[in-house]
Amino acid sequence: MNQTLSSSTPTSLSPESTRLDTEAQSSIGNSMDTETDSITASETSVSKGSRSGRLPGDLAMWIFILAELTAFALLFSIYAVNRALYPDIFAEGQAGLDITSGLANTLALLSSSYFVARAVTSVEHGNNRKGFYELLAAIGMGAVYLVIKILEYKHSIELGYDITTNVFYQYYYLLTAFHFLHVILGMIILAFVAIKTRKKAYTPDSIMGLESGACYWHMVDLLWLILFPLVYVLH
């Protein structure tokens, strides 16, 4: 995941796609290259055949992901602006956060993304049973994330920091809670595709739904990879 983030290359759009589709694609083009590559990277061992170079997952899902990424991009920018406006409050607040928990959560989400990518590969090889267990593992790592985050919230609240404490904590709670809810939504989506994987609704030739769910989960992971350094680490 990390290495693909830096090695992404823009993919060209086919001219024969409809104009409306091109519109939506070109606007998400850049943001999705990373994800495209992370999937295709895991696919390299598979014979790609006619499916090479196509968008993994459904375009509808990509439009949704684009909207979500835009919302988070705005939230992150507003956070950054406020940090520039109140450097002392933010530095003090950041010092109060438990970086170990944040790191543990990063690992949890990264490993769950790994399991999701593995699950896609398994189903591509026709091994739905393995894919199902890999999806369960991914959901499990998501649950680990939720537990750690809840403990972290509990700790902060016990120390007397809540959303009204100051501007840092307002943004800390809003950003992380909003991401937290996305983890839950992502887990529900994963559970949905896991059940369908088990029912063999996906086959090597018909894997769009699973890929769409995987893309959403990678987005949730990616957002944390931005959120974690932004809120916990960067000074």
Binding site: T70, A71, L74, L75, I78, Y171, L174
Partner: peptide, 13 residues
């Protein structure tokens, strides 16, 4: 106050 952030972001979309 948190509505200022959420309201701004989502209505901007």
């Amino acid at each position: 106050d948190y509505w200022q952030l959420l309201g701004s972001v989502f209505s901007a979309l």
